[in-house]
Design a protein around this nucleic acid. Structure first.
Lengths: 294, 294
DNA sequence: AAGTGGTCTAGACCACACT
DNA sequence: GTGTGGTCTAGACCACTTC
């Protein structure tokens, strides 16, 4: 949508589902250690707000900056670090934890990128007053529905390989007539139809068994097949349902529906999926959070 | 929307309008310099793909990592760095430019975050096959319309201060009945109505002159008033237009409209704006790009 | 074995905000 | 002036990928 922020700023939208993103873990660690500092469990009391326990485990395969980042994130989520409170300066924090300043900065930066912290030069690092309400509306994928306890189900209405139409070929960057999977699914929540999903995928990328498609979401299948998703172009609009669409979705003809078209690309920029979806506007909306990217 | 990506990954959506984001600039620079390396303009030929000119200006107030980042970004945009090509290893690059490896890494990382580069351990850093089509549809704000050459215009239909309703008070985190600005605007492009925008803002944050509102967008006014936008919660849906809405938007009653509700927060998490907007589905859609956040 | 990115250290100077 | 984050250096060891 060219997302409506200030002209000079890029935008980032972050899904509220910010669970652990497990990094590629190192196995062991043997850097130059601080010679005279015992480090380890340190109860922060020297600076800023901190009255919380922080400490890193150098024998763990998890990167130090990531351990710290997670601890800070949890402290914020649990309210141990009050919104608006100062974190204490980076140097002290590094000293108390037995880490170097760059490592501490890396941890803090990752939380700034997530929108949990704000840094101000000359002032300090503060916890943002969280406006982190849980999503009230439903979300768009099987896994999200499942997470929200919405009892999702999928009916696979179509699952074939056929020649690509001009539109599909263009969106996937293939030659017209090239073989592609065509999948059509009806997504239900609590036994109520929510969305009609039509997807096209190039052949050879992953097996697409109807049973798998009914058991889980497409993206999870792709990830399991080691397809590394990288980016997507997406368009959200609305229109009146056709008679056929209305019948599928238990709506009446002419009822407003949300449309979403999306092409997904992998690491190397290959299009790996094109989806053209219809959602019942009466039961569905897209909810997300925007972060301004300095 | 809890954005439909893989369960374990957070999502980021980036507006395609990624113009320069001017960093707080330093004035001078006098770090320890590499002693024996003349540095400066270097034509890359030693490693990887690079046959492009890179070089940094140490007398510039612009941070070195940012200078490098911009040069690489331009090279990618202009096709001087072909999609899929390797960038050459970080150490060589640092040596050739007379920079340290962390500085080079910082430059590269910023492009990885933007989705332009991909790093693979043991392999190298590659340029992503760009799928950067310009947005085909219109965008959502005055400035975006203007950028797209859409001849935007705004009619201010309402601009008062009045007590907050329960809904508005809740969204802005104020007490019910507290004074708030209420603004209603009709947004046109090429003299055609595109959207009906209703906004509420707390008083005292910035002056809201009707003339200003007709000349530019609300976010630009807020930025000019030194309101530092930080994040927003947003919901996109659809429904049938009421008779009144249809009349305002030159649609017929019952026509599908896109709805967007958004609360915007500043650095400290204060709600600075609540908007409840209606877009003509026949003329408008939201277009954006998603980036998977490792 | 060689080459890459991923992580980490121990310093340093600078710009900015506050008192 | 003092304290903060912003930037930068010159090293180091590690894990992963490819040959």
């Amino acid at each position: 949508m060219a997302l409506t922020w200030q002209a000079r700023k890029a935008l980032s939208i972050v899904c509220q589902d910010n669970r652990t993103s497990p990094l590629p873990a190192n196995r062991t660690r043997d850097y130059a250690r601080p010679v005279s500092k015992p480090a380890g469990q340190v109860e922060g009391r020297t600076a800023g707000n901190a009255s919380l326990q922080l400490g890193v485990d150098r024998s763990s395969p998890v990167p130090l900056y990531y351990q710290l980042s997670r601890q800070l994130e949890e402290a914020i989520e649990q309210g141990k670090l009050a919104p608006g409170s100062l974190l204490g300066n980076e140097i002290d924090l590094a000293g108390r934890l037995g880490l170097s300043r760059p490592t501490v900065r890396q941890a803090i930066q990752s939380l700034v990128d997530k929108g949990l912290l704000v840094r101000r030069r000359g002032v300090g690092t503060q916890v943002v007053h969280s406006q982190v309400k849980r999503p009230l509306e439903l979300s768009s994928l099987y896994d999200d529905l499942e997470t929200a306890g919405q009892r999702p189900a999928t009916h696979v209405l179509h699952n074939t390989v056929e020649p690509a139409s001009a539109e599909v070929a263009a969106m996937l960057g293939l030659a017209e007539g090239a073989d592609v999977h065509r999948i059509e699914r009806l997504r239900l929540a609590h036994d109520e139809p929510m969305a009609y999903l039509r997807n096209h995928l190039p052949v050879g990328l992953l097996p697409l068994e109807t049973a798998d498609l009914e058991a889980t979401g497409l993206y999870k299948l792709m990830r399991n097949a080691s397809v590394t998703l990288h980016s997507a172009r997406q368009s959200i609009g609305a229109r009146a349902a056709t008679a056929q669409e209305a019948a599928r979705l238990s709506e009446s003809e002419g009822a407003p529906v949300l449309t979403m078209a999306r092409t997904t690309f992998d690491d190397m920029g290959r299009a790996v999926e094109y989806g053209s979806h219809i959602y019942r506007a009466s039961r569905y909306s897209f909810e997300f959070q925007l972060l301004v990217r300095g």
